[in-house]
Computed example of a mutant assay.
Amino acid sequence: MLVSAETVERMALVNYTQQNRDAQLAGRLVTKGPEYERLKRIAARLQGQVTTFRDDAAKWNWQLALIDAPVINATCAPGGKITFYTGLLRQLKLNDDEVAMVMGHEIAHALREHGRERVSRAVAQNTLTTAALTAAPSTEAQVQAAGAVAHYLFMLPNSRQNESEADAMGLELAARAGYKPDAAPAVWRKMAALGHGKRTPGSQATGSEPPEFASTHPSHQTRIAELTAMLPKVMPLYQAASANKPAKAAKGK
């Protein structure tokens, strides 16, 4: 980790603020209504469980943005800045449990600092300079630097290891919050049925996915199989949460 968590969170916040400002100017930032309120409710339940994985996450300034765009995507920036797109909710027709699995997965990336890993790797490879990361606040240089950081946070795919780790942690997080674990493989069955992999904002569907060996993401079927295999470990957490009882840690965490 060559870049501090504070630096990455600061850059992520600049980008997040710009993203929301642009969406607002375009009339696409949703700040009320059934879809937004549903996401807000689910986010609150998930956030209530983050200290299971790291205590300091309870002090993050958690925020939620819903953007009205036909994009199948969701993210959680370092520091707890969640973004969902209406395309994900509507095209996949996600129920609350499925939304929680997607959101839990994205929150897990932030909890495990996978984005910070990629930014640090970029600095190590000299594709991102430390000078850019220390750009003066409220300057055009900082906005440009934040855009560069966002490229490494969101545009580049995660490694298979990081994706699998976020799957496992996100599943446990959602189960602890009282969401049905079998919704996780259900989400990816829906993704497979649509022929979509996870896409970044503005990208187009191809109607298919690359072979697993040609992608850093697990294939849909591999992902479904791995998530299904995890269900027995997290089901007791879901049952305990549903019964409003303290949950024990999942085995193999």
Rank of each mutant, 00 (worst) to 15 (best):
V99I: 15
Q221M: 14
Q18E: 15
L156R: 13
G115L: 01
G79W: 09
K180L: 07
S219A: 15
L64G: 00
A166P: 02
P246H: 10
T127M: 12
E35Y: 01
A243L: 09
G104Y: 06
V119E: 01
M101W: 02
D68W: 00
A241M: 13
D182H: 01
N61Q: 14
A249S: 12
A240P: 10
S120R: 01
A77G: 07
E35L: 13
N95P: 02
R118C: 07
R90N: 15
P232S: 06
Q91N: 12
K248L: 13
T139N: 07
N95D: 15
M230A: 12
P157L: 03
R118G: 04
K248M: 12
E163P: 10
C76R: 00
A247Q: 13
K251F: 08
Q239N: 11
L2G: 15
K245Y: 03
M101Y: 02
N126T: 05
K32I: 00
N20Y: 02
M191T: 10
G80F: 06
H109Q: 06
K81Y: 08
G48K: 02
H220I: 08
M191R: 08
G202C: 10
K190N: 11
A77C: 00
N61M: 00
P181Q: 07
A174C: 11
R38C: 00
S164P: 01
V3F: 10
N15R: 14
P181M: 02
E9P: 09
V71I: 15
W188M: 13
G252M: 08
T127K: 14
P201M: 01
E98R: 01
S219I: 09
R223Q: 04
K251Q: 12
P34A: 03
T222K: 14
V71P: 04
G178S: 10
T222M: 14
C76I: 03
H196T: 15
R223Y: 08
T51M: 05
Q18H: 11
F154Y: 12
R21Y: 13
E106P: 05
G178Q: 11
R199Y: 13
A148P: 01
R121Q: 15
F213V: 07
E117M: 04
T228W: 00
M11C: 09
E165S: 15
T52R: 15
Q47T: 03
G202E: 11
T127C: 07
R118Y: 09
G202H: 10
T129C: 00
R176L: 15
G27T: 09
E117Y: 10
K93N: 15
Q18A: 14
M169I: 12
K190H: 11
S208W: 14
G104C: 09
Q239Y: 02
I72K: 10
L64M: 02
V234I: 09
T52M: 05
A124G: 14
K233H: 13
A184S: 12
E98P: 08
A131Y: 05
P232M: 06
V50E: 00
R112T: 06
A65I: 06
L92P: 11
T216Y: 03
A145R: 11
A23M: 05
P185V: 05
T51L: 05
N73I: 13
L94M: 07
V119L: 06
A23T: 07
A145T: 08
A74C: 13
R176A: 06
I82R: 00
C76A: 10
W188K: 07
L133W: 04
M11Y: 03
S138L: 11
T52A: 09
I224W: 06
V30L: 04
V149E: 05
L39Y: 00
H105M: 11
